[in-house]
């Protein structure tokens, strides 16, 4: 781990000033990094993948930024709320099962006690070449150096949203429920607060896989908002072991149904794409249709229509389709 100066931020404006001091335009690689739960940052600092010269502890903001608020029609979640606390919230389990389960099925009890929602959506890929600096060729870590995964072991890599520069999977789970439910992110920066669609936060790799988000230096995520209630929703995650493992393929599904007919449908995919992935065209097939298994399979096929597999990860297409079909079935048949 590189040496760093440690500072703790007792209020948001101090944190933002310190973060803005790092300059540049790529927040993920900035020399000043905010420290929340540390489960991504400290891990990657130990691997020398992230090398901030200054670490700003934002845990003192927890008091103000950990609220979970279900008043009114919407759900608001503070960015410093811990994954475990949101997953265990009885009203969220009832009104947003997809949110609670995407958090509960992630990582381990210890990690969920530490990790914050803000840090969670900004977690970095688990691409083994990205995490191992003895590989020189990783465009995300080392722009222009090539991509070791392309012809390497790419079983865990993405089939959607890839580019010829990077095929790293976005590893998180919670982001899928945010993007499915049209969530928004509240961002605070020097010039005030802005709110963007969660779908606008992450950037596909394209020609600059090293730039992962649209955050500007000095900006902090203060919270998330989800409009409406989604009691008929499911997060289904397929993985190599039953627990404490990242998704090979996952689906976040939310349905609004009346007499067997789908009024509104949301579908997002995890474990298979380079960014949190909303399958808009596929979900559109469900609208105003009577739900049955054949329809679920058509939706699943559509969700992976544009998939481009590499040598070891073609199985994710077949697996992903089954996960989508089963998640839709579970959501359509659940008691609400």
């Amino acid at each position: 781990m590189q040496p760093f100066v440690f500072q703790s931020a007792n209020d948001p404006s101090a944190a933002m000033q310190a973060l803005a001091a790092s300059g540049g335009n790529n927040v993920t690689e900035a020399p000043v990094q905010a420290l929340a739960g540390g489960t991504t940052l400290i891990d990657l600092m130990k691997l020398d993948v992230m090398r901030p010269s200054t670490v700003i502890d934002i845990n003192p903001l927890s008091g103000a930024w950990s609220q979970i608020n279900l008043e009114g029609e919407n759900l608001r979640l503070g960015a410093m709320a811990r994954m475990a606390d949101v997953a265990a919230h009885p009203e969220i389990q009832k009104a947003y099962p997809v949110v609670a389960d995407s958090l509960k099925l992630a990582a381990s009890a210890q990690l969920r006690n530490m990790a914050t929602l803000g840090g969670n959506v900004l977690q970095r890929t688990r691409c083994t070449y990205f995490r191992d600096i003895s590989y020189g060729n990783c465009n995300k870590r080392n722009p222009g150096s090539g991509c070791a995964a392309m012809e390497g072991v790419n079983r865990m890599h993405a089939v959607l949203g890839t580019s010829d520069q990077c095929i790293a999977t976005y590893a998180g789970d919670f982001a899928q429920s945010l993007i499915a439910l049209d969530g928004t992110v509240e961002i605070i920066g020097k010039s005030g607060t802005r709110s963007i669609a969660f779908a606008q936060l992450h950037r596909q790799p394209g020609n600059s896989p090293q730039i992962e988000t649209t955050l500007a230096p000095g900006e902090l995520i203060s919270g998330f908002m989800i409009p409406g209630r989604w009691p008929r929703s499911v997060y289904l995650k397929a993985r190599d072991r039953q627990s404490y493992e990242f998704a090979l393929a996952s689906a976040a599904v939310a349905l609004d149904m009346q007499n067997g007919v789908v009024r509104d449908a949301r579908l997002a995919l995890g474990g298979v794409a380079t960014v949190p992935w909303r399958a808009r065209e596929a979900e559109g097939l469900l609208k105003e249709q009577k739900f049955d298994d054949a329809l679920a399979e058509r939706v699943a096929d559509a969700a992976f229509a544009g998939a481009t597999p590499r040598h070891h990860n073609a199985f994710k297409i077949a697996l992903g389709k089954r996960v989508v079909a089963r998640a839709l079935y579970q959501a359509a048949t659940m008691e609400v």
């Binding site: 007792n10 944190a15 310190a18």
Partner: peptide, 21 residues
């Protein structure tokens, strides 16, 4: 390991020589 407050943010924000990591 300096606490950052809004008031102290000026000097604290730019790590000085005194804050040798």
């Amino acid at each position: 390991a300096a606490p950052l407050t809004a008031r102290a943010a000026g000097p604290a924000a730019t790590p000085s020589a005194a804050q040798d990591p």
